[in-house]
Amino acid sequence: MTDPVLSARGLVKRYGRVTALDRCDFDLMPGEILAVIGDNGAGKSTLIKAISGAVIPDAGEIRLEGRPVRFASPIEARQAGIETVYQTLAMSPALSIADNMFMGRELRCSGIMGTLFRRLDRRAMEAFAREKLNDLGLMTIQNIAQPVETLSGGQRQGVAVARAAAFGSRLIILDEPTAALGVKESRRVLDLILDVRARGLPIILISHNMPHVFEVADRIHIHRLGRRLCTIRPADHSMSDAVAFMTGARTPPDVMEAA
């Protein structure tokens, strides 16, 4: 059996009296789309934040390609090639689309303007941002310099997904990336996710949309009460099975595939 790209064992995260992660295990296999489903408050966002360095777990171990890692910040996870679309999107509303796409990894002009005066290469950043948004097909761009706050919720989500897809080199995490999107925009994001997998990158997809999950996921991690309840293959179960497991209406069969 192949080794997971990313695995976690016994992750614990407490917020005061709330235990968001309760000895949670997690495995992501090479090149797969792993969906994570679970009720609101089950701890899905906390799990992916622990993986992406946004939250430091109280206990437990995370391994990236077999090596233990301890990300102290999202910057460190990003440097390791983990790119995340957070549920809150993590954008600065007053700054432009291009500024947001390059936040924390800005391009500088070449030559003395870049080295001495540290001048941003606006033109290159805007061209890149425009290209990535066009690739995504989510929007026709009129003004890449317009502030993100003038975009609709769906457009913002599109920018956040484009940012992750453009920069991810090891794996991509998407926390409810289609929650604010219309039917066609969701389709684009799903196609993009499939594109990314075709490039060989594994993806973690958190979603409440069962048809989407069952359409694109290779495996489904069902999260319940702060931990992994089970992992299923979409081919082996129906959507109502999955919902029954995640809400606790039914217990999953004990015999589960490993990992």
Partner: peptide
Amino acid sequence: AWGRHVYAVGDDPEAAALAG
């Protein structure tokens, strides 16, 4: 980039931190 970070931190420090 420093200037953009100043604006981002003032706008929403949490989002800025998540964005790197």
